[in-house]
Amino acid sequence: MTAEAITAGRLRRARYRSRVIWTALVLLAAGFAVTLMLGQSFTPPQDVLRVLAGQEVPGASFTVGQLRLPRAVLAILAGLSFGLGGAAFQIMLRNPLASPDIIGISSGASAAAVFAIVVMGLDGAAVSVFAVVAGLGVAIAIYALSFRGGVAGTRLILVGIGVQAMMQSFISYTLSRAPSWDLQEAIRWLAGSLNGAQLAQAVPVLLSLLVFGGLLVMRTRDLEALRLGDDAASALGTDVGRTRAVVVVAAVGLIAVATAVVGPISFVAFLAGPIAARIVGPNGSALLPAALVGAALVLAGDYAGQFLLPGRYPVGVVTGALGAPYLIYLIIHVNRTGASL
C-alpha cells in the first residue's frame, strides 16, 4: 500500500464520519422543530419562529415558549450529556455493557439527588453539585474496590453491579422515609422525566456540557488510544493514568448533572454508544456521534411517551422498554463475536 492510498483512505473515512455527524445534526434539528410545532395541537412554523424571536403570540407563546421549548431543549442537553458520558465509559473500559447506568454510577448520582431533595430539602443547582460529588465518590469507590494490583475491567463491572444494588436499596429507603413527597412524582423522577421542564433548569446542564463535554472531546484521541489496550496506548504517547482520570471525572460530571435535573433516564447512556459505533463503523471515534444519538433518543423517547402511546409515560419508561430488546441483541452479539466478555 502506498502512502497515497493510506492518505486517501484516511480522508475517505474522515469524510464519511463528518457526513454522519452532519446528517445526525440535521435530523436532530428537524426533530427539534417538529416537537416545537406538533403537540396536542399544531402550531404553524411562522408562529414558532416568532415565539423564538421573543414576540408575544396569543396561545403559542404559552404552549411553545413555556411548555414545548424548555422540554425540547432539556431533552437535547440531557441526551447529549448521557450519550457522551456513557460512550466515554464504554470506550475507556472497552466494553459496551460497562455503561454508567449498569455499573452503578447513575444510581449513585440519583441516590444523592434523592437524598438531597427529600432529606436535606435542597433544590436547583445545589442538588446538581451534591449529585456530582456523590457520583464521583461512587466512581472512585468502585475503582478503589476493584483495585487489586491493577484494575481488571471484569472486576470493575462486577463491583459496579454490587454498588448499584446497594444504591437502589438506599433510594428505596430514602423514599420510604419521605411520606410528604408525592410517591407518584418520585417514581416519575426516578424513571427519568421531563415533566415540568423549565429553561432555568437547562443552565447547569449546558454549563456541564461545555466544561466536561469539552474536556472529553479534547481527549478524544487519547480515549481512542485506550481502546487498543493500556500498553499500546502508552506506546502511542498517551498518558494512560491522566487520560483515565480526566475521562472519569468528565463523564461522571456529565451523567451526574443531567441525572440531578431530569432523573436517571434509563439506558440512554447505555444505548447511545453502541448505536453510534454501528453507524460510524471503523471510520473514527464514535464519541461525538454518540452524543447526538443520545440527544435523538431522549427527544424521540419523550415525544413518543407524550403523544404516540396510549396514556402519558415519562421518557425513561420509553427508553427503558426500547432498551430491553436492544440490550438482548447486544449481549447476544457480543457473546457471539466473543469480544470483550
Binding site: L97, D101, I102, T154, I157, L158, I161, Q164, Q184, I187, R188, L190, A191, S266, F267, Y313, P314, G316, V317, T319, G320, A321, G323, A324, L327, I331, N335, L341
Partner: peptide, 23 residues
C-alpha cells in the same frame, strides 16, 4: 460475568416496565 450482566440489565429493563404499569 455474563450471567451477572444479563441479569442486571434484564432487571433494569423489567423495572422500567414495572414503573410504566405503576404510573
Amino acid at each position: 460475568l455474563k450471567l451477572a450482566l444479563a441479569g442486571t440489565a434484564t432487571s433494569i429493563a423489567l423495572y422500567s416496565l414495572v414503573v410504566a404499569v405503576m404510573l
